[in-house]
């Protein structure tokens, strides 16, 4: 997990290249091509080919149960999506779900990483425990949480009532206001350990001398954290957040397993809509159009991130 930034290696290579520009460049290009070729083959066959079909379908009438319509659809599939009353609410909920999840994951990941970086006893035991949610399959975790959260026979509600935390059981996944937040909560539970591991690794590599000299200068622990530790975590954090924004926005499993987008669409996000277009309406055209749009949104986020990262650090992005 490391940011996509330039390295001194490249500078060195450039220096070498200056000596023998022509031949050297060709050799480098060839070596690079050889190295990325296998990955490129996989991408071409398993991603580019399906993606080209998605692109094609987005501009054609493709309906599995209605073969009477076919042919070039111009922008009709996009119109279908825009005219769908669910589209804008779903787009908004996708943002909400992504932001809540990623912010929660980052907060918990940072808190746990800081705690685990302390020189305490039984550190490795705690480090092992924190990883556990991440190794539980999403479908199983989703079912288990759904069951634990049910009002009538779910353990969490009953215990919280017994402990006096709540007056009566609450249907977390069944209420319009709480369904999406509850699924986000479970998503945070399952995903934050990944942040913990990455942030912890970065924390452990913060040079000790800097912190010590700061302590000598009588900087308090909070000041030390804000002014010394956080900047060290910046790149890792940005990368983590960026990749998880993508993963969360297109995540389908958690919401589907726990609420199927319900109740009354309260947890419907764009991937759920794509699924519905394809598997319930059999309108592959509209599903593809929506998928293209989703990718468009994500690319927009990517460019914002890219330029943001570029302007905030003097190092330029690698590619």
């Amino acid at each position: 997990m490391k940011a996509l930034v330039d390295t001194p290696v490249a500078t060195r290579l450039e220096a070498a290249a200056r000596r023998d520009r022509g031949a050297r460049r060709a050799a480098l290009g060839k070596a690079a091509a050889v190295c990325v070729a296998p990955a490129a083959v996989f991408l071409l066959v398993l991603i580019a080919y399906p993606l080209s079909r998605v692109f094609w379908s987005a501009f054609h009438y493709v309906n599995l149960t209605n073969p009477t319509v076919s042919g070039f659809a111009r922008l009709d599939n996009f119109t279908t999506v825009f005219e769908d009353e669910h589209f804008w609410p779903s787009l908004w909920r996708t943002c909400e779900w992504t932001v809540v999840s990623v912010v929660g994951e980052y907060a918990l990941g940072l808190a746990s990483a800081v705690a685990l970086a302390q020189p305490i006893r039984a550190r490795s035991v705690f480090r092992a425990i924190v990883i556990i949610p991440w190794v539980i399959p999403i479908v199983v975790a989703g079912l288990n949480w759904t069951w634990m959260l049910t009002p009538d026979y779910g353990v969490l509600n009953i215990w919280m009532v017994k402990l006096g935390l709540m007056a009566k059981p609450y249907y977390w996944l069944g209420n319009l206001n709480s369904a999406l937040l509850t699924v986000s909560f479970v998503n945070i539970w399952r995903s934050f350990p990944f942040y913990t591991i990455s942030l912890l690794a970065a924390l452990l590599s913060v040079p000790r001398e800097i912190l010590e000299s700061a302590a000598m200068d009588a900087a308090g622990p909070i000041r030390r954290f804000v002014y010394i530790t956080m900047p060290e975590l910046k790149i890792v954090s940005l990368t983590l957040i960026f990749i998880h924004v993508i993963w969360t926005a297109i995540n389908f499993d958690f919401i589907w397993v726990m609420t199927q987008g319900g109740p009354y669409n309260a947890s419907e996000t764009l991937p759920i809509m794509i699924y519905r277009y394809a598997m319930e309406d059999f309108d592959v055209g509209a599903a593809s159009a929506l998928a293209m749009m989703t990718m468009g949104f994500m690319l927009a986020v990517f460019f914002i991130y890219w330029y943001g990262a570029r302007s905030s650090s003097r190092e330029s992005a690698t590619w």
Binding site: D152, Y171, L173, G174, N175, G262, P263
Partner: peptide, 10 residues
């Protein structure tokens, strides 16, 4: 009232 969001399992 929770029945409004029950599935078959509940």
């Amino acid at each position: 009232p929770d029945g409004a969001s029950w599935g078959w399992e509940e």
